[in-house]
């Protein structure tokens, strides 16, 4: 990157040429990035724009700017999607499930990646197998299982499957990361007399921070959007989660799109905040880890 400022400047002409070349390269990179940004931002813009339209305005002109800004859509959407109640449920279920899967998953990944034992490979395969299963195939069995465990219609009935279904990807990511750490990282700790658990908490976990942040984001978003289990395992209105509320806008023959867009906009904000909060750990993790290593 900074070759132009290196003291070994041999030929002025050469370096100017290189600089021009670099500038062109930079322009291309930015053009690509900007194009990419536009394509990615368009759906959000469209959603926000239409969330302010009247139903008639949307029906007659789904593209343009709103002719009048209907803030009432948001109030209506809040009611229809029952965001007041469902929001808390979604946050609670989502976060607890993430906590359970990350805590147990990281611990298991530590043993699977840093230790040699007979059942290691089969266990790893067993865990990863879960990634291959279409969630809808398990709806009926899951319902019956929850009935037998007598936790149907409770938040636990969502938390446990969410944690279980995020286990494979969590383990998969964490194990493959932990496996790349050089052996030396533990050796000094062992010399200091640290035990297995201690090494996990104070050496391995901090180093794994970027990927834990990644896993937390991915799992949380999955839980946040999960619909099918939430549909069949919860009956009580006061326990339902947001995706069910968001489905309330579609009837048999009509969909209240403006209301739905307003609700989706409101629901998008917390996920964005969540992402922004964790994203810095994904990136910053590097600099800190490097200093340590």
């Amino acid at each position: 990157m900074d070759a132009a400022y290196s003291p070994s400047r041999i030929d002025d002409r050469f370096s100017r040429k290189a600089r021009v070349k670099k500038r062109i390269g930079r322009v291309i990179v930015y053009a690509v990035l900007l194009g990419f940004a536009v394509v990615n931002a368009y759906p959000i813009l469209w959603m926000v724009m239409n969330s302010f339209k009247s139903k008639q305005n949307f029906a007659l002109n789904p593209f343009g700017w709103p002719t009048e800004w209907v803030l009432a859509n948001y109030a209506e959407a809040w009611e229809t999607a029952n965001i007041g109640t469902y929001f808390f449920n979604s946050v609670f279920v989502g976060l607890v499930a993430v906590a359970v899967s990350i805590l147990t998953g990281a611990l298991a990944a530590y043993f699977l990646s840093r230790f040699e034992f007979k059942l290691r490979a089969p266990l790893y395969g067993f865990f990863v197998m879960g990634m291959l299963v279409p969630i809808h195939a398990t709806l009926v069995p899951m319902f019956i299982l929850m009935q037998h465990l007598k936790i149907i219609n409770t938040h636990l009935a969502l938390i446990l499957p969410y944690a279980a279904f995020s286990m494979p990807i969590t383990l998969f990511l964490l194990t493959s990361f932990m496996a790349t750490f050089p052996k030396e990282v533990e050796e000094s700790a062992v010399m200091d007399g640290c035990g297995v658990w201690r090494i996990f908490v104070s050496v391995i976990l901090p180093m794994t921070r970027p990927v834990i942040a990644t896993a937390v984001i991915l799992n949380f978003i999955n839980n946040w959007n999960e619909f099918s289990f939430a549909l069949v395992l919860i009956n009580d209105d006061s326990l339902r989660t947001l995706p069910l509320g968001l489905a309330n806008f579609a009837g048999e023959h009509f969909t209240n799109y403006t209301g739905q867009m307003a609700a989706l906009t409101m629901v998008l904000i917390p996920t964005l905040v969540f992402y922004l909060l964790l994203e810095k750990h994904i990136v910053r993790g590097m600099t800190q880890g490097a200093v340590k290593g």
Binding site: V100, A108, L171
Partner: peptide, 17 residues
Amino acid sequence: GIAPAFLIYTIFCIVPI
């Protein structure tokens, strides 16, 4: 170390499958 993850995963992912 592995048991908690194993149990949750087995009961709520593998058994239904």
